[in-house]
Design a protein around this nucleic acid. Sequence first.
RNA 1: GGGCGGGUGGCGGAACAGGCAGACGCCUUGGACUUAAAAUCCAAUGUCCCGAGAGGGACGUGAGGGUUCGAUUCCCUCCCCGCCCACCA
Length: 813
Amino acid sequence: MNYNKEIDKKWQDFWESRRVFNIDTNDKTKLKYYCLVMFPYPSSELHVGHARNYIIGDAVARYKKMQGFYVLNPIGWDAFGLPAENQAIKHKVNPREWTLKNIKRITEQLKSWGISYDWEREVTTCLPRYYKWTQWLFLKLYKKGLAYKKEASVNWCDSCKTVLANELVIMGKCERCSTPVTQKKLKQWFFKITDYAQRLLDDMKLLKEWPERVKTMQENWIGRSEGVEIIFPVAGSGIKLQCFTTRVDTIFGATFLALNWEHPLIGELIKDAENKTEIEVFLRMVKAESAFNTFADDFEKKGIFTGKFAVNSMTGEKIPIWIANYILSGYGTGAIMCVPAHDKRDFEFSRKYNLPVTEVIKPSGEVPGGPYEGEGTLINSRDFNNLSSEEAKEKIADYMESKEIGKRSINYKLRDWLVSRQRYWGAPIPVIYCPECKEVPVPYEDLPVLLPKVSEFLPTGRSPLTYIENFINTKCPKCGRKAKRETDTMDTFVDSSWYFLRYVSPRNDESPFSTDKVNYWLPVDQYIGGVEHAILHLMYSRFINKFLMDEKLLQFPEPFKRLFTQGMIVKNGAKMSKSKGNVVAPDYIIDKYGADTMRLYILFMGPPHKDAEWQDGSLLGVWRFMQRAIRLLDILKEMPGSQEKEELNESEEDVIKKIHATIKEVTRDLEDSFQFNTAISRIMELVNKVYKGINGGGLRKQVIKEGVEVVFTLLAPFTPHISEEVNVLLGGVPSVLDKKWPVAEERYLKEDSLEIPVLINGRVREKTVIGIDWPEEKVKEKALVLPRIRELLGDRKVKKIIYVRNKIVNIVA
RNA sequence: GGGCGGGUGGCGGAACAGGCAGACGCCUUGGACUUAAAAUCCAAUGUCCCGAGAGGGACGUGAGGGUUCGAUUCCCUCCCCGCCCACCA
């Protein structure tokens, strides 16, 4: 027999016509398993780099199905977003048609790889049936005050003509097109994810089966820090400045304050300043530079004195107030107390502007050069001298709270989620503006707010929707007067923050998901995707999940129980991309070697959580292995003799033992972690062993048959097509997935003797065969009388013999 | 600057719990089959040294040190590579 693409086709048709992967009912007596891969963005056809994600997911889903689980393995499309719109601008194609065309193509691809999706549950975020519920989600958040509009200085990409969320600004540049980002004030919609900051942090302890790395990234992103917000009255005015610090123990070393250029009190501070004009020039300059300068490596700290002084309430001293370009506006209060003796940045600034430096922390050990930023013992701190930093933080905070000159406070780096996009290809934000009633949410019964057809896609900085008269002009749902629609659309991360809930009831038009089904299937047992989504997508999904739980629409605090982040497939050391010309297209491979070869190679190429280099030669090796395994069937067919069970000879027993050892190890590799690579190599070893047995001449039909059967059953999650074919050829009933996953029999796992190395002073010198679990003395005796050992020992005195049971003998001489 | 990974043959990578380093695959070489080639099968394949040969020896998991009878694995110091975050007070 030969493996070829006809076999692929045959079984793909079989699965589809028998609806093998379609799950109709919730048989609650069966254990469920929800296997989810991050759904693709349909921007172009898939290459082998993309394939890894889906193939890993499929191997897991099929394996779990063979384990007897009731497996949900769905797929869908993250179909809104910029690339479709950019295509529209560049090539004048309709984003919807372009997207749907890509979906069609990728669907073909996934089907040709034999991925076991339940296609009847397909979800597409750009279709009204889906985005109706994205809009519903917006309204739910709105009603709870968690979706709000505010004017904000936002990141603006002049090339994409759009607002960018902070997380899409990389080193001051647009993530997509690398244009330097500038600042612009606009009224924008936000989701109040900051309300959930603490819970997102606390519940991380529930995510025991997430990679540590991802959890750390999220923790850093939330960025909780505890400290004190100190009040600094401004001398000679009624103004009070608030400064957040995590190092209140250094308060006696605060020699100046620094404000961000957008600090709301600047106007009042400088209104009668002598150098007011100079300051205003400085403010304008800093503002202009702010967008990208702060990210430059050679960023230069700059500042200007406001002419005003603040009172340090701990000392009564007056310290100058500066405006500085290195102070962040969005974090804390936008004003800080500066302690140049114990903060590198403040130190740098104090050097430049000749500001005083007072040491207040004495390090316990040696002092390296520069400002000391660690903790230590307080000096020059009046009543608090000689306290440790740790004690001082508490005592000073207590003191400040009692005198009402400061209070304990917690700050997070996490900001609210900006969801507005001045773009066409997204879900319209369901809000109407009425001259009388102001901001009015679209009533639930009027959803969806349909995205109208648009023919012109001019990147003007306004959504193309602003030009569609019959979209904008509507009636106020409250008073019925003429009103206008919101023209912003939602960030695509909103679409993807809940799609995994939609899969349980994709055709439910009454609600986003059926509660009983969602509580049965969720949380997702295994989520698989790239690390690039470690922060945003996963954080947003967790947030939305928690919100929906608060709304009593579901009963689990976390959506994804277990997370696996796979590594990239690279070629010539680089990520595959069209521009680099190193893309490996799957079609050719499938055509020539079949889907199973590609699947098996992708799983074999290395540990799936690590990056792996695509090598054509190794693909051929996998192909050879498959052919070799298949050839066993021909050997079997041509072999004389019956398949009756008979007493096993020695070589046969060897093979049987190997079969059971392989079952055990492969199962362990799949169960503990996703060690497909080692699982496959063990199956290869088994095939090699069977060949050795055949060439040795001692193997009869029944043993070979058992070997082949086990090989292809164990391979079934990886090479489903050929495994189905072999199963039938061996007299089985399809589908092979209904076959029980093999279980190793204990009696074949036991050996009664084994060879162990004999070492002298830690070096292997000889090997010897011992009985399993022989008493220690017996083994030692045997080792010492071995001729070679005696020869090597010579006259030397044996000091000690170490025996590790069934492992090793080491003679120390 | 901070955080997280990682460094093992010519290559991709194994080694569960401190116990035979290099499984499995690729590449390469030799042999068989063949008119020939491909395919297939068999065998060799970490480096260096001794030996005609069978065989034997030394070295070897980024570098150096430590613990141990024994270290890729544990501890300390350092170097290099990758990714993520980055003036968060």
